[in-house]
Design a protein around this nucleic acid. Sequence first.
DNA 1: AGCAGAATTCATCATGTGTTGAATTTATGT
DNA 2: ACATAAATTCAACACATGATGAATTCTGCT
Lengths: 196, 196
Amino acid sequence: MAADVTGRPGRRPGPTETRERILACARRLFAEKGYDGASLRGIAREAGVDPALVHHFFGGKQGVFVAAMRFPIDPAAVLEQVAHMPRERLGEALARVFLEVWDDPARRAPALALLRSAMTNEQAATMMRQFVSSALLGPITERYRIPPLRVQAAVGQMIGMAVLRYVLEVEPIASAPPQELAAMLAPVLQHHLDSS
Amino acid sequence: MAADVTGRPGRRPGPTETRERILACARRLFAEKGYDGASLRGIAREAGVDPALVHHFFGGKQGVFVAAMRFPIDPAAVLEQVAHMPRERLGEALARVFLEVWDDPARRAPALALLRSAMTNEQAATMMRQFVSSALLGPITERYRIPPLRVQAAVGQMIGMAVLRYVLEVEPIASAPPQELAAMLAPVLQHHLDSS
DNA sequence: AGCAGAATTCATCATGTGTTGAATTTATGT
DNA sequence: ACATAAATTCAACACATGATGAATTCTGCT
């Protein structure tokens, strides 16, 4: 992953993919250590680049974070799969989408980064609150007329599973096959969303 | 909360409660910012004390953390309330204990600190894994012969609720009355623990 | 009274952090 | 060919962190 062995300044020949490389490393480090734990310099080191370059491209650490976050989270596109579903299969659909996103490493990285960061960083927490509220709560709550508390209980079940499986990596849930988890998840989500 | 306005060194007259004061501040700060976010110096500042004192008492930052963690988590005593319950009321009992602990600020602090810290700090993660495994999974799994995966799904539901309610403080779940949450929680926990 | 030990502060070190401004090299548009 | 803009590194700053060793003041035991 390291690039310039040449220690001298100035632009490199050929087309430049450095920006993407930095973003990829940033996603990995933010996902591994959270916002506060990852450092600009660490990201630069991983990308084989001077820290000042990272700062120059994104205007600061926070800039790198937001740039790294808006990747494949498809805030609306994901919910599209859920939105036009008969209400009695909502649980099933949610469980499937949840596991689909979290089991794809590329889409898991930003999600993990946000989850980890939101626990200790106020700005990341605000981002996550907004995501929960406007990408999950909002649509479901108004399309299906389900009380917010119920929806949040369902969201909580998913978050907790993400914590155990992807953050703490506790066994056996960390290695369980996705279908098995979906089978456990679906009825519970459905139950939460059902009760009047 | 500040103590010595006298800036001069040496032992203070009278009996000393400084150690406890430091621990209290440590619990608060670890709960607010997590292990990596809280600093030795910040704790010392809050306690109105020199950073070196904290180091002297607990032998380092990690020492402060473990000392702050082993407070009122009663690893076994809490589960006592659950352990001798008929299996069909396990969900109810778990939900009650969960909300009881998390709604008492004194007992919530260490729990919150561990939850927040475990997301980015490997040692805290290990602590939390051990707590989940040996204080929740172990007892329930072998006393009631419930598959670990099921128990973890139930634990996940509780963790997720803690995240939404106490870390992110999303409304309306952050302000919902405990009984309402217990009423939503109990049947779901029971369901997880029921299915063969 | 005296003395070991505990409590407490001070000054300091090495390290890591985000940020900034200037310098240098290449690419691109005219 | 030339000029502007972009990419890239370097050097440095101001600051915070955890840790350490020495110095000072008090308590408690004998």
